[in-house]
Amino acid sequence: MSPEVPSDSGLAAYNFAYLDEQTKRMIRRAILKAIAIPGYQVPFASREMPMPYGWGTGGVQVTASIIGPDDILKVIDQGADDTTNAVSIRAFFQKVANVAVTTHTGDATIIQTRHRIPEQTLSEGQVLVYQVPIPEPLRFLEPRETETRKMHALEEYGLMHVKLYEDIAYNGRISKTYAYPVKVAGRYVMDPSPTPKFDNPKMHMSEALQLFGAGREKRIYAIPPHTEVVSLDFEDHPFEIQRFDKPCAMCGAENVYLDEVILDDKGGRMFVCSDTDHCEDRREQGHVGELLAIQEAAE
């Protein structure tokens, strides 16, 4: 047991943060190796967690290995703090580690995420933990693990561009919108987990440490702070992020990633910030979106 962990925490049934100390050491070693080789997928002995695969078992193990009693945890799912996955993982760490939790991006020291990077720029000292379903960017092009490992080792990434070529041939543009492949520190091609490609530029030269955990596939990889992350593209079809016609209907924010919400069965819909914390912050500061203005006028 590490010395900073209080032994009288009243959690007799669990070790601090659920995993036993030997497991945490093993995972920390994998994390250190991943940080030393940016973008490289480090195998690790993934454990059974009290939740099904696909619910973030990889991210939870990474978070459990790095969290300390003084950390402040934020968990988001598709940008939202209040969806099932986020709520249950947050409750899990409150129970097994008794740590402080928050929904404010700026206050958190560890942010575990599924599918989004917060809109607010992350700063030094923060750690972003991604839940990854399929860590291998080449998987759907080359099914053999022995072959994909060799391709990574020998830096044979032509196949990744074959996929992008196909996109342009069939759709006239690169139609991949999420899990958009990136090259990390000029060496390894990496799958940024199913985040929208809108978030890819946020990974580039980020001040925060970014850790990726894939529980079922038993891989950990990382982007250390201040690391070059380049989205793959063609010279005549450069990488672009999604653009939205309208600002957020609730807070009026522009240049953020929006979710479409169906309002009724007559075709009514609105586009709102996918990052709930960012949206709430802006509304507290007095920003009012189109739909919120109508609502307030009606009241």
Binding site: V162, Y165, E166
Partner: peptide, 27 residues
Amino acid sequence: LRMTVSAGANVGERLMAVGDRHYGNIR
């Protein structure tokens, strides 16, 4: 051959593997 990708991509794969990054030229 890669049976699941188009004929154009099959021919272009080697070009992309040696670093050609211009879609128009590859095509």
